[in-house]
Nucleic acid binder design. Structure first.
Length: 453
RNA sequence: UCCCCGGUAGCUCAAUUGGCAGAGCGGAUGGCUGUUAACCAUUAGGUUGUAGGUUCAAGUCCUACCCGGGGAGCCA
């Protein structure tokens, strides 16, 4: 008999005579003549309670079952006689699929996130991490639905790149050369190769072909950053739109974040509730805040003016021309506006070469979306479509034009205004779960000095 | 990479001024009335992160290193 997933079983509106479930024992309570087993199969947060009477043929074996063991249960789904659950299964046969030794490290009580990180291969068997990764899966699906409804095409940009700079961060070298060898002309690709830090340059080529496109894939940064918001390998969503200016770009970013939060409410209610109860008591209010408020849009120079006048005692003094520090972003989002905001038109000196220079020749058409508690969740811009200005800016940052000949040719043949942004997928998951460490929203986190599992 | 805090049983933590290394949970064994982090009893479990130093005596003080956390920079 094929198994039924617990998520579907618990939706039942009437008793069922013959059901089979398969899963892992979360906990077991023995009485003199029978045992209660709590079974979870990962299909949802909740367990199903199984009642096993001593009259069952292999009851001696059942009594020895341990937390973490895998079993198959066939029996009758009936209304529970006890409190705390509406359904339970009266077991007719229980098959032990695998007995976990008593050294199984997950206990019934709460574990610290730090400890669970050290057993990342087992932590999805906990309530909290099971919920994280179900939500992560739903959010990934929602991203594709959002774009598909708007006729965006999903482009798979390469993971391996021949560029040694894409305007964002240090890169991981990819080589088949032996230790100490640096003759890259003899290397696999005949030149230096790296892992991508962004699919943007490549996806721009498809925006200038298919119109509205996006990438959604892994991204690698070799920065030695040790924070709760950075990982060496993370997933990024990068839409890119032809014939779109900065204003349309901001519209898409705001619309997308709101769509994803609404999708979460509609499809992840049970898992979301765990985070609202146990991880962040203010989670629901802050997600409602994101959903219901128009994101404040203000010029970089106005943001600086607010920071200069606010009287807050910042560690880093505020002045026009500087990049905003975390404390400044947090003040604006959490204290001043108390809702998400979009800061745009930053000075060109602090932004990368591909951002479009504004008519003032001082600023670029860039935008950062900042949300309370998370900080920057989206960074984007209108791209520089004018060949002469683009090449001049590349020269200033000492980039090799020859390496980007293909990128520059897109500004030779039918160049058009276009815009896009990057959204950090893990930061999105942090936002919607209230989890404060990026290592806890990605299956097997890679950070400096950490690539176990 | 920089600043701050921490590392004691499988887990979460305690240990007074430098003076016998402990508890709860988990495990094992037994008991038990339909239990819900079940309950009751018994019991095992330790190179106090590593290496060195000070001292009659170090979990506790000093030095170096390793690992973890928080913050900063960089960014998504």
């Amino acid at each position: 008999m094929s198994r039924i997933k617990i998520v579907n079983l618990l939706k039942s509106e009437s008793p069922i005579d013959n059901v089979t479930i398969k899963g892992w024992i979360r906990t077991k309570r023995d009485s003199k003549t029978f045992s209660f087993l709590e079974i979870n199969d990962g299909s949802c947060l909740r367990n199903i309670q199984v009642v096993v009477d001593e009259t069952i043929s292999n009851y001696e074996e059942i009594k020895k079952l341990t937390t973490g063991s895998a079993i198959s249960v066939t029996g009758r789904l009936i209304a529970s006689q006890g409190k705390g659950q509406s359904w339970e299964i009266t077991a007719e046969t229980v098959e032990m699929i695998h007995l976990a030794p008593e050294s199984f490290p997950l206990q019934k009580k709460r574990h610290s996130d730090e400890f669970l990180r050290s057993i990342a291969h087992l932590r999805p068997r906990t309530n909290k991490y099971g919920a994280v990764f179900r939500i992560r899966s739903e959010m990934a699906y929602a991203v594709h639905q959002f774009f598909r409804e708007r006729e965006f095409r999903y482009i798979h940009t390469p993971i391996l790149t021949g560029s040694d700079c894409e305007g964002a961060g240090e890169m991981f070298r990819v080589t088949t050369l032996g230790p100490g060898q640096t003759d890259y002309e003899n290397d696999f690709f005949g030149k230096e190769a790296n892992l991508t830090v962004s699919g943007q340059l490549e996806v721009e080529m498809f925006a200038l072909s298919l119109g509205d496109v996006y990438t959604f894939g892994p991204t690698f940064r070799a920065e030695n950053s040790n924070t709760s918001r950075h990982a060496s390998e993370f997933w990024m969503i990068e839409p890119e739109m032809a014939f779109c200016d900065l204003s349309g770009n901001m519209d898409l970013g705001e619309e997308m974040i709101k769509f994803l939060v609404q999708f979460l409410f509609d499809n992840c209610a049970e898992d979301l509730n765990l985070f609202a109860r146990f991880v962040d008591k203010s989670l629901m209010a802050s997600l409602q805040n994101v959903l219901e408020n128009k994101f404040e849009r203000l010029l970089y120079k106005d943001a600086i003016a607010i920071l200069e006048k606010c009287g807050e005692n910042f560690e880093f003094p505020v002045s026009y021309g500087m990049d905003m520090q975390s404390e400044h972003e947090r003040f604006l989002a959490e204290k001043h506006f108390k809702k998400p905001l979009i800061v745009y038109n930053f000075p060109k000196t602090i932004k990368p070469f591909y951002m479009r220079v504004n008519d003032d020749n001082e600023t670029v058409a860039s935008m950062d979306i900042l949300v309370p508690r998370i900080g920057e969740i989206i960074g984007g811009s209108q791209r520089e479509e004018r060949l002469d200005i683009l090449t001049a800016r590349m020269q200033k940052t000492q980039m090799e034009k020859e390496d980007y000949w293909w990128y520059l040719e897109s500004r030779v043949f039918g160049s058009v205004p276009h815009s896009g942004f990057g959204l950090g997928f893990e930061r999105l998951i942090m936002m919607v779960t209230g989890i404060t460490n990026i290592r806890d929203v990605i299956a097997f986190p890679r950070t400096p000095k950490n690539i176990d599992f």
